[in-house]
């Protein structure tokens, strides 16, 4: 099983999120053929229909393209990959900023801290969940 899931959000959404991360980081290369539903289900230890649902989400976003006979492929649309990456990054930043704000830090303190941690090399946590 690849990591466990949070109890408060549907598993398929969490799964779709992990798939997106794999795509934008290049763990799954553009144009690459994706593993089958069964393989992904085994890898993540989740129900195949849940995988199916997460993949449907990716297809709707255009990140994955289903070909009738030959399977499912990662998009080669560079523009889309860039915007998706940007979205994920924004999402993570918003989450981070929210936590700092909750701790009572202001923007300047947050930015300073970010720079310090980044240069320490501790910033690269959980970049992808592979």
């Amino acid at each position: 099983m690849t990591g466990s899931f949070d109890a408060d959000r549907p598993i398929y959404q969490q799964l779709a999120h992990r798939f997106r991360e794999r795509i934008v980081t290049g763990y799954w290369q553009p144009g690459e053929r994706m593993a089958s539903v069964r393989e992904l289900a085994l890898e993540y230890g989740v129900n195949p229909n849940t995988v199916q649902r997460a993949l449907a989400e990716l297809e709707r976003e255009g990140l994955a393209i289903a070909e009738r006979t030959s399977g499912r492929f990662i998009t080669e649309d560079e523009q889309l990959l860039r915007t998706t990456k940007r979205q994920l990054a924004e999402e993570a930043t918003r989450e981070w900023a929210g936590r700092l704000r909750a701790l009572g830090l202001d923007q300047a303190e947050g930015a300073r801290l970010a720079t310090a941690v980044w240069t320490d090399g501790h910033g690269q946590t959980k970049e992808n969940n592979a």
Partner: peptide
């Protein structure tokens, strides 16, 4: 348990 779960998912 993990092996059993795997086999369940595999037999699906």
């Amino acid at each position: 348990r993990q092996l059993i779960l795997d086999s369940i998912l595999r037999s699906y």
